[in-house]
């Protein structure tokens, strides 16, 4: 082992302090990244998009062959699901008629429309986190497309996560399970929807509490975003996997399994956050 001269040690210490400072500044996400980062990303992304596209097309061709047995089993399960869904369609058609009547009544009473998601941005996944700990990914939409920090990211299966860093034509997305930010939820109940909050954990499971100690919920119950916090109301999160009977806790605890398969996300929709715009305007 050889010793470094004093000047080298000083340089190492200074660089380390600078790096740690930059880590501190950039942690927590930014509404616009630095010029250097944007430059690196703009140089790398076109090449990466090309490589990722080739990789995806090869993967798409190989995957069906590799998962032949799994697909056969899935096919059986889907047939059973179709049977049960047919029965649900009949009952839902009746509910729909009722809903149309209620909407007409709403119009007649001049009710104000409250929630509707119209200003979303469609984006493709450019690349995924190459590490072994998190499932973050990068999308091909940025500030030029109207994406802002903390925008909700969804796909066909439900809530995926939120935008963390925003570049000019790219954004870094942190998934639900990779961020320790709380998500307020509401249960989809016919009689009484219960509210609560959940938090991400790295084992792909969300954990949290139901605010009502007398809540009657069971595994399999569907959860959607409640509209409190950064996520808009009514986005599907997942279903309750387990209800934990912890007598020491004041509130009932739940374990939630998200519907989104975080490893096979290809296309997403971004719902720009309004909060950040307001913050920027005030600055």
């Amino acid at each position: 082992m050889h010793a470094y001269p004093k000047w080298k040690k000083i340089i190492i210490i200074i660089v380390s302090i600078l790096l740690l400072t930059f880590m501190g500044i950039s942690a927590g996400g930014r509404s616009s990244v630095s010029v250097v980062e944007n430059l690196v990303a703009e140089v790398v992304y076109p090449i990466q998009k090309f490589f990722y596209g080739i990789n995806q097309s090869i993967g798409d061709r190989i995957e069906p062959i590799a998962e032949l047995y799994k697909n056969a089993r899935e096919n059986e399960a889907l047939k059973e699901e179709v049977e049960s869904l047919r029965a649900q369609v009949v009952s839902l058609t009746l509910d729909q008629r009722e809903l149309i009547e209620l909407r007409e009544l709403k119009g007649a009473l001049r009710y104000v429309e409250t929630e509707s998601i119209q200003n979303f941005v469609s984006a493709s996944v450019l690349s995924k986190d190459p590490g072994n700990w998190y499932e973050n990914f990068v999308i091909d939409a940025g500030s030029e497309d109207g994406v802002t920090k903390n925008s909700a990211v969804i796909n066909g299966s439900g809530l995926v996560g939120m935008v963390y860093d925003v570049g000019t034509n790219w954004s870094k997305v942190v998934t639900l399970i990779d961020k320790r930010s709380t998500i307020s939820f509401s249960s989809v109940g016919i009689i009484a929807p219960y509210d609560g909050q959940i938090i991400g954990s790295a084992d792909h499971i969300l954990r949290g509490q139901i605010f009502d100690p007398t809540a009657k919920m069971s595994p399999g119950d569907l959860l959607v975003t409640s509209g409190l916090g950064i996520f808009p109301k009514g986005i599907v999160i997942g279903e309750i996997k387990e209800l934990i009977d912890n007598r020491d806790a004041l509130l009932p605890e739940v374990v939630v399994e998200p519907f989104v398969d975080f490893q096979s996300i290809k296309k997403v929709m971004v719902i720009p956050s309004v909060t950040v715009d307001t913050e920027a305007e005030s600055e």
């Binding site: 380390s16 790096l19 740690l20 930059f22 880590m23 501190g24 950039s26 942690a27 990244v33 980062e37 690196v40 990303a41 790398v44 690349s127 986190d129 190459p130 590490g131 998190y134 973050n136 990068v138 963390y164 870094k172 942190v174």
Partner: peptide, 14 residues
């Protein structure tokens, strides 16, 4: 890696 994936820029460089 940091610019494109990390929660905080500088982690992988460090």
């Amino acid at each position: 890696l940091d610019v494109l994936y990390a929660h905080a820029v500088g982690v992988n460089i460090f």
